[in-house]
């Protein structure tokens, strides 16, 4: 591990100034991802800015029924109102990592965790994300974990978060603070597709700090995750669904997929199959089919297409039965 300067700001303003003053500085929150990247030589920041003591660890319910989740709330967050209002989010959080990791991992860090692509995490391989311009070893490597949607010739990695997938279905907004003040980034615009710059993963500027996640009031939601083993594994494919039904008709639907793209992948075509229809098996089956629209399978990940179809169908069915 390369030496770094450790700083522990006492306010968000100080943290932002520290990031701005040192182009090599990175934020450390729970550290559950970053420490492994430091140890493996994947990251070598000149400075770590510790944001654990900025008072960003609070849940704050707003008069209009929305909630602001502090960026340093841990992924083990246990709040009965959050469970009732956003079951899909709490299911997503509980399906991630292990209890010990959830006790340390933060909401902000969860959004900013790096891909689990093995070629990114092993410095002996070429990776445009880790070392821009070096190439992508995954293109001719093991394709089983790679992206179905939104990949580029530069990068086929997927985002590993469960939480972020639920946040897309729940229409979250990311609150950030930077030198110019506060800014709100809709969750769908927070993560970006790789294009020719896979090293750039989010809309966050390097001197900005995620301070909270805002969730508006949401319809019933559900999260379903498929993985190689029952627990403590990243998603092969997951789906978060949030559907508002009244009078037997779907009024609104938001569907997002995990494990298939460099960002949580919103399925607009699947949503369109539901809105205005009864929330029943035939329309749910059509939504599952539509969720695969635009999929570009690569050698090794073809299985994900059928998995997307079934995960979406089952997530919606379970939500309907709940």
């Amino acid at each position: 591990m390369r030496p770094f300067h450790y700083s522990r700001p006492g306010s968000v303003g100080e943290a932002v100034r520290a990031l701005g003053a040192d182009p090599g500085a990175e934020v450390i929150a729970g550290g559950t991802d970053l420490v492994t990247l430091l140890r493996d030589g994947v990251r070598a920041p000149s400075q770590l800015v510790d944001v654990n003591r900025l008072g960003l660890d609070r849940l704050s319910w707003q008069p209009n029924g929305s909630v602001h989740i502090g960026a340093m709330c841990r992924n083990a967050v246990d709040d009965s109102r959050l469970r009732r209002a956003y079951p899909g989010l709490v299911q997503a959080l509980r399906s991630g990592a292990s209890p010990q990791i959830r006790n340390r991992a933060s909401f902000g860090g969860n959004l900013l965790q790096r891909t689990r692509c093995a070629y990114f995490r092993l410095p002996e391989f070429d990776c445009n994300k880790r070392n821009p311009g070096s190439g992508c070893a995954a293109l001719n490597g093991d394709g089983a974990q790679t992206a179905l949607f939104g990949a580029s010739p530069s990068c086929v990695a997927v985002h590993p978060s469960d939480c972020a997938v639920a946040l897309v279905a729940l229409n979250a907004v990311v609150h950030v603070e930077g030198p110019a003040g506060a800014r709100r980034i809709p969750i769908e615009e927070f993560h970006v597709l790789p294009g020719e710059t896979p090293q750039r993963e989010t809309a966050l500027r390097r001197d900005e700090l995620v301070v909270a996640i805002e969730l508006p009031p949401a319809p019933p939601s559900h999260y379903l995750k498929f993985r190689d083993r029952t627990s403590f594994a990243f998603a092969l494919v997951s789906a978060a669904v949030a559907v508002e039904v009244s009078g037997g008709t779907v009024r609104s639907a938001r569907i997002a997929l995990g494990g298939v793209a460099a960002k949580p992948w919103r399925c607009l075509a699947a949503e369109r199959e539901l809105v205005g229809k009864p929330f029943t098996a035939p329309s749910i089956a059509k939504a599952g089919d539509a969720a695969t629209e635009g999929a570009k399978p690569r050698p090794g990940n073809e299985y994900k297409v059928e998995l997307v179809r079934r995960v979406v169908r089952r997530a919606l069915t379970e939500l309907g039965n709940a």
């Binding site: 450790y6 700083s7 522990r8 700001p9 006492g10 306010s11 100080e14 520290a18 003053a21």
Partner: peptide, 11 residues
């Protein structure tokens, strides 16, 4: 602990 190492850092 507040303020360790940051107040001194100007751009």
């Amino acid at each position: 602990l507040a303020g360790v190492g940051v107040g001194l850092a100007a751009p």
